[in-house]
Computed example of a mutant assay.
Amino acid sequence: MSSRADINAGLRKLGKFAPSGYFVGLHIRFAAPLMQFQTYREDWAEFYVRNGYALRDPTIAWGFSTTGSCRWSALPIPDPFNILREAAAHGLTYGLTVAHGLISSRTICSFARDDRELTNAEIEEIEATVRHLHDITEPPASLTKAQKEALRCIAEGDRHAAAAAKLGITESAFKARLISVRERLNARTTAEALQRAKEYRLL
């Protein structure tokens, strides 16, 4: 996995194409993305959640049905709940959805503007950036034995000194293991690393 700085750089690049906001769901597994980012206006985000649109959204349905990109104006998926019309009323007038990856770990992203359709050249650049974000956030296939031992100690509630003693290493060596596992899982905190390790089924 890549560093948070690399991910943020990709998101900044995507944000330039979507002045009305975006949703980026990376590696959707078991109906939830491993990482998600969204910059839509708060009123639309709240309206979307309040109405349970995630299970009815034609852009999400399209993203699970195929890969590539599609302007919202050309989506071949029915929209019986008029979600796209509601989106337009909230300033998301023109949009694009991009889907990439295997169905077992699909990345689905949507980008919105209020002024015009995205050009073909812009779509190509967006697709390339989404593919890059998908690739650099691919979860690791495994953790080292040392990394697993360190995370299990934390999961059991051990403090650093106690965990180090249990493993027969110095406290600084134990902290180094935690740093390495945070980097491997692209986590900001040890708690986040532990949660991701569980989600990725690495423990």
Rank of each mutant, 00 (worst) to 15 (best):
Asn8Ala: 13
Gly21His: 01
Ser110Cys: 14
Ala193His: 02
His160Pro: 04
Asn120Cys: 05
Ala161Met: 08
Arg131Phe: 07
Pro58Lys: 06
Arg41Met: 12
Ile136Asn: 02
Arg12Cys: 04
Gly157Pro: 07
Gly15Ser: 08
Leu151Arg: 00
Leu202Pro: 02
Asp6Tyr: 03
Asp115Met: 01
Asp114His: 13
Arg177Trp: 04
Ser104Pro: 02
Thr119Glu: 09
Ser73Gln: 10
Ala74Lys: 15
Leu34Asn: 05
Ala165Thr: 08
Leu143Asp: 00
Gly21Arg: 01
Arg182Asp: 02
Phe23Met: 11
Leu167Pro: 07
Gly101Thr: 05
His27Cys: 04
Arg188Glu: 14
Phe174Leu: 05
Thr93Pro: 09
Ala112Tyr: 03
Val49Thr: 13
Leu133Met: 08
Leu178Ile: 12
Glu149His: 10
Arg50Glu: 13
Ala193Ile: 08
Gly157Ser: 04
His90Cys: 10
Asp135Met: 14
Ile60Pro: 03
Ser172Phe: 04
Gly68Lys: 12
Ser65Cys: 03
Arg159Leu: 00
Leu133Tyr: 02
Glu149Thr: 07
Glu42Phe: 00
Phe17Gly: 08
His100Glu: 09
Ser110His: 10
Tyr200Lys: 08
Asn186Gln: 14
Ala165His: 09
Thr59Leu: 11
Ala163Lys: 05
Asp57Arg: 05
Asp43Ala: 06
Leu102Gln: 11
Glu125Gln: 15
Glu156Thr: 06
Leu84Met: 09
Cys70Gln: 14
Glu171Thr: 12
Thr39Met: 10
His132Glu: 12
Leu143Gly: 01
Phe17Ala: 11
Gly91Val: 00
Glu42Asp: 07
Ala162Thr: 09
Asp6Gly: 06
Ala150Gly: 06
Asp43Val: 06
Glu149Met: 11
Arg201Leu: 13
Cys109Tyr: 00
Ala89Glu: 13
Arg182Gly: 01
Arg159Gln: 09
Thr190Ile: 10
Phe23Asp: 09
Lys13Cys: 04
Arg201Thr: 08
Arg152Trp: 07
Ser172Glu: 15
Met35Gln: 15
Leu185Ser: 06
Pro76Ile: 06
Leu14Glu: 00
Ala18Lys: 02
Phe81Trp: 13
Val181Phe: 01
Pro33Thr: 09
Phe17Met: 08
Asp6Thr: 09
Lys166Cys: 00
Val49Arg: 12
Arg50Trp: 00
Ser65Thr: 06
Lys175Gln: 14
Pro76Lys: 07
Val49Phe: 02
Gln147Val: 08
Ala191Asn: 15
Leu84Gly: 05
Arg159Gly: 01
Glu156Trp: 14
Glu42Gly: 02
Ile123Asn: 03
Leu143Cys: 04
Phe23Glu: 03
Ile77Met: 15
Ala32Thr: 12
Ala121Trp: 09
Arg106Ser: 05
Gly21Asn: 04
His27Ile: 06
Ala74Glu: 13
